[in-house]
Nucleic acid binder design. Structure first.
Length: 716
DNA sequence: CCGGGGTTGT
DNA sequence: ACAACCC
């Protein structure tokens, strides 16, 4: 009953999808571009560019190693050739080919592992940045495609241009062999083709990359026409040829936006070609897909796409994953998760923002339907954990996140029974920019701001440019690229901090992954009794588990990295408390070695272990309140102060454990919790301000995110 | 078909 | 939390 009539919801926003159906009936009729609704909020005639790099990963590898240019090169991820250079293509190799098939076709094929996306990601953002130097309206699609809305640029050039121009097209024009005459009739697209050519040259000159461009009046068309002349060329689509290009598609599946599922559903309706869909009654379509989707699908078939080029900005999430034949023990899960987390936390630290949400995704083996059985669980990241991620002690954040991950894991897998995983993924989302919008200087120097209180913000680079994309300012739409990007330097290379574990990219490249952080292999001890196992452990002077605090599950303990084990066995834990100060003077994050970072927050280790233990072995923990529940995961560390007033601590903290902590640690914890208290939302409370919808995000936030974006543009 | 990513919509 | 889409 709520609304049988959609459409109404929240309007009063300027552009409306609901108008797309009233766009000029048939593309063919649009030969007069000026007949577009004049009063509409969207420009009558947009000029949209779509850039698509040639065999992107292969190009990056060929830049890194020019010798690869002359050989057939395939980029391998696991058992798949995800892309290959054109030498290889001439020899019969294609995308999505299995390695065995490819080697069969082309025995000389040279393979480079491409599972580590670091270099591709960096190059990808350099490209986006270069495009943004022309115009802020850049939308990424994957790592190697970008849309750019150059309407304003075109209009300005048109106005500046001395009227009698010898218009011509650069590059190809779809379905035209000689483009001379059309240019006068399509001055905007013609100018667009020149701009596209300039940009492609710039891309080649500055980044060494070749690619294709499509020039058209909307994103759909620009993308489609982009691929018509393949390597390193560009194509313009004139409005009178929209029908042609749509009709040329071999199936509905080729229409961007029509995926596997949708094409199957359409097929069930008897629709296989684009023309079928164009002619299919909208009402019938709406019965299957609902009115909005039906209209969208029909428009796509007609080549109509009013969706705006939405500036992408900094990513909404960062994730790291690995797939494998089989993981079937908790220990392997722990190790793999830690490896993934190490990488992800490192990337997160470079980003500078602070994730509020953590998600673990798994894929369980399944003979039938091997693909697409992923499950995920997510939870908020406790504030004190999240704060460590962008800080010097990010390494340590891994340790704190690990128990969280394991909790989520146990929500999906009953580890007391056999299991078989083929994929693990860790993901940070809900990324929050911590405002270093502080006082005087808004410049990069604010990056060096110290955080002076425990719960405080991490430094961030802020610059000024706010609106950038808004209507009128125009100053951001440059006819010629400003090379600001070449001036931008990577802020993260700031101060001292020698990175402990350099992320060896070449190692990853050659497939020899470095174990990031030592999870000790206490391997063969797994099923052996504890004392036996520990007794022959040389460097670890590990006593029997009987010396562990009672809250720790010995089995869990054995799975932990050696550093953590050591910490747990240090006097501060095993003895009564020497009263060491934890982070005591709360001044700044002390520059610390890895080991010191472990030292400085033993409380967290304790908590972490407690959590881990509670999920793995409920019987060994003495939580007053049940600790393994969903709610508990969700509320971790920021949660429900069980009752009112001062003497409470979060429900997930075992009072007993707390009482064992050194007094000053207790004090610090209490003050930390108190600080968080006002910020808390009770689990059941309605948030006063609802969480941001994606539309909200588009409307707002982009400006500040743009500031953040440049972190992805590393100096070469 | 399934690699290592991303986004949006329900 | 998942499903769909994109690369």
């Amino acid at each position: 009953m709520a609304n049988s009539e959609d459409e109404k919801e929240e309007d009063d926003t300027e552009w409306k999808y609901s108008f797309v159906d009233s766009i000029p009936l048939i593309p063919a009729a649009a030969s007069d571009p000026s007949l577009n609704r004049t009063s509409g909020p969207t420009p009558a005639h947009r000029v949209i560019l779509h850039f698509d790099l040639d065999c992107f990963y292969a190009q990056v590898e060929m830049i890194r190693n020019p010798a690869l240019r002359e050989v057939p090169l395939g980029i391998q991820q696991k058992y798949i050739i995800v892309t290959c250079n054109y030498v290889a293509r001439d020899l019969g190799v294609s995308k999505l080919m299995s390695v065995t098939d490819a080697k069969e076709k082309c025995p000389q094929l040279v393979l480079v592992k491409g599972e580590d996306l670091t270099h591709y990601r960096e190059m990808s953002y350099k490209l986006t940045e270069l495009l943004m130097s022309y115009c802020p309206l850049v939308e990424r699609l994957g790592f190697d495609e970008n849309f750019v809305d150059i309407t304003k640029m075109v209009e300005r050039r048109l106005a500046e241009t001395p009227e009698s121009n010898n218009f011509s097209f650069k590059g190809q024009v779809y379905n035209h062999t000689s483009a001379e005459l059309e240019a006068q009739d399509h001055p905007r697209l013609a100018l667009g083709s020149h701009i596209a050519a300039e940009i492609r040259e710039d891309i080649k000159g500055k980044l060494g990359l070749t690619g294709c461009a499509g020039i058209a009046t909307n994103k759909l068309l620009a993308k489609l026409v982009c691929g018509t002349f393949k390597p390193n060329q560009q194509t313009t689509l004139l409005t009178e040829n929209i029908d042609d290009i749509m009709g040329s598609l071999s199936s509905l599946r080729k229409v961007p936006g029509v995926g596997y599922q949708t094409s199957k559903r359409l097929q069930a309706l008897g629709l296989v070609s684009v023309k079928d869909l164009q002619l299919f009654p909208l009402n019938d379509l709406a019965r299957e897909f609902g009115a909005p989707s039906a209209q969208r699908l029909k428009n796509l078939a007609l080549g109509v796409d009013e969706s705006p080029v939405t500036p992408t900005g900094a990513p909404q999430s960062l994730s790291d994953e690995d797939s494998f034949k089989k993981i079937s023990s908790t220990k392997e899960v722990l190790e793999k998760t830690q490896e993934l987390l190490s990488n992800l936390v490192e990337r997160m630290r470079n980003d500078g923002r602070q994730p509020q949400t953590f998600r673990l995704t798994i894929r369980k083996y399944s003979a039938t339907n091997k693909w697409f059985n992923r499950e995920s669980r997510q939870c908020p990241i406790p504030n004190h954990v999240g704060q460590k991620i962008p800080s010097e002690s990010s390494e340590y954040a891994v340790v704190l996140l690990l128990p969280l991950a394991m909790k989520l894991f146990h929500k999906m897998v009953d580890s007391s029974a056999a299991f078989h995983l083929t994929l693990l993924n860790v993901c940070f989302s809900n990324l929050q920019t911590k405002g270093a919008a502080v006082s005087g200087k808004g410049s990069i120097t604010s990056f060096f701001t110290q955080s002076t209180s425990p719960g405080k913000t991490q430094p961030i680079c802020s610059s000024q440019s706010q609106d950038a994309s808004s209507q009128n300012g125009g100053s951001h739409c440059l006819d010629h690229p400003v090379s600001t990007h070449s001036v931008i330097t990577q802020p993260t290379s700031k101060k001292t901090v020698t990175t402990k574990r350099s992320r060896s990219s070449e190692a990853a490249l050659h497939g020899t992954k470095i174990k990031q952080s030592p999870i000790v292999a206490v391997e063969d001890t797994q099923r052996v009794s504890c004392s036996t196992a520990m007794s022959h452990s040389e460097e670890l002077d590990v006593p029997g588990t009987h010396q562990l605090p009672p809250h720790f599950d010995p089995e869990v303990f054995r799975l932990l990295p050696v550093e953590i084990q050591k910490e747990l066995l240090s006097p501060a834990y095993t003895n009564s408390h020497p009263g060491t100060s934890v982070n005591s003077s709360a001044l700044v994050d002390p520059p610390c070695t890895t080991h010191e970072s472990f030292n400085d927050s033993q409380k967290d280790i304790k908590e972490a272990l407690n959590n881990l233990g509670s999920s793995d072995r409920p019987t060994t923990v003495n939580h007053q309140r049940p600790a393994g529940t969903v709610e508990n995961v969700m509320e971790e560390g920021r949660a429900s102060f069980a009752r009112s007033s001062d003497c409470d601590f979060p429900g997930n903290v075992d009072p007993k454990v707390f009482s064992e902590l050194p007094p000053d640690v207790q004090r610090e914890l209490m003050s930390e919790w108190k600080q968080k208290k006002p910020v808390l939302k009770t689990p059941s409370s309605k948030k006063p301000g609802r969480s941001l919808t994606t539309k909200d995000r588009k409307a707002a936030g982009k400006g500040s995110q743009a500031n953040n974006l440049f972190k992805y543009f590393k100096p070469s």
